[in-house]
Amino acid sequence: MNVLVTGATTPLGRALVEHLLALRDVGHVLAVGAEHWGPGLPSDGTRFSYEQVDLTRGRSVHDLLYGPARTCGIDTVLHGVLHRAVRDQGERIHAINVEATRLLVQACVRHPDIRRFVLRSGGEVYAIRSDEPNLLDEDRPLAFDAGAPQWLRDRVEADLTTCAQIGTAGPAIAVLRCAEILARGTGSQLWDYLGSRVCLRPLGFDPMINVLSIDDAVAAAVAALSCDARGAFNIPGFDTLPLSQLIARSGRHDVPVPGPLLAPLYRLRTRTVGFEFRYDLNVRRFHVGALLDGGRARAVLGYQPRHPIAFPSHAALAA
C-alpha cells in the first residue's frame, strides 16, 4: 500500500505519516500540504516524500495525482484537509474545505491506480436535537441549517460531496466521521473552550461528551486505509464523560450560567480576546448529549477506541 496523505502538516497528519511509515505493508507515503514544509515531518527519502500543493486548483490536483503520486505508485488516498479557524470565512475558505475535497475525490474516481479513498470528516456534521437518540448512528440527519456558520456548512458539504461518490465505480470510498480530537492545533472547539480559566456551562445541563485522542484517530484512519469497506463510519473516542467533568479534569472552573446569557458572553469574549470558541456552534451539544455510535466502525473496520486522551494541563491550554 502506497498512501497519499493530505493535511500532513497538521498534528493528526504528522502522527498519521509517522504511524504509516512504521508499518511494514506501507511502501511509500506521499505527504501533501499547503505549506512549504511541515515541522515534525521526516525528510524526503526512499519511503517518504512531501509535496506542496494547492488543492483548490484543479490543475494542481491533476498534476499531483498524475505526477508525483503515479511516480510513487500511490493507490490509497487519505484526505484530511479542513480549515480549522472558525472565524475565517469566505470563498477561499470554502474552496479549501469543499472545492478541494470535490476536486480530489473526483480526480481519484477517474484515476486508474487509486483503489481507496478515505475522507476524515467530523461528528459535527450531525444535527443534534433533544428528541433524537443519545447515540448518533451514521443514518442520523445531518446539520442542514442555512443559518449555521460557514465552518459547519462547509463540513457538511464536504462530507456529502464525498458520500455522493461512494456508489460510483472507481475507488472504494469511506468517510470517517470522527469525534472531536481534544488537542492543540486540531481546530478543536473544546480545546479553545477549555483555554479559559473559567468555563461557562448552561445552568441545569451537563451533557455527555465524547472526545477522541490523536492515537485513536490515527488507528481509525489506518484501519480504514487497510480495507475496502465503503460508506460512512462514526469514529468515537475512548473518553466519554459529562461536560462538567471534562472542565474539572482540565483544571478549569466550571460556572453554570443561565443558557440565554451564554451566547452574548462568549460573543463578547471572542470580540475582546479573539478566541476561536463559538457558542452558537456548540449550543445544542452543550444542552443535549449526543455521542457517536461506533458500532459500524467496530463491526466493519475493526476499530475500537483504546487510547484515552491526555487531559490538557494549565500550561498546555494557556499556551
Partner: peptide, 26 residues
Amino acid sequence: DRFVPALPLVSTWFARTGAVVGTHAN
C-alpha cells in the same frame, strides 16, 4: 419521554439516575 432532555436540572438528574430518552436507538 422525549421532552425530558430539554428540561434544565431534570434532564441531568434523570440521566444520572439511569433514565434514558425513549428513542428506538437508545
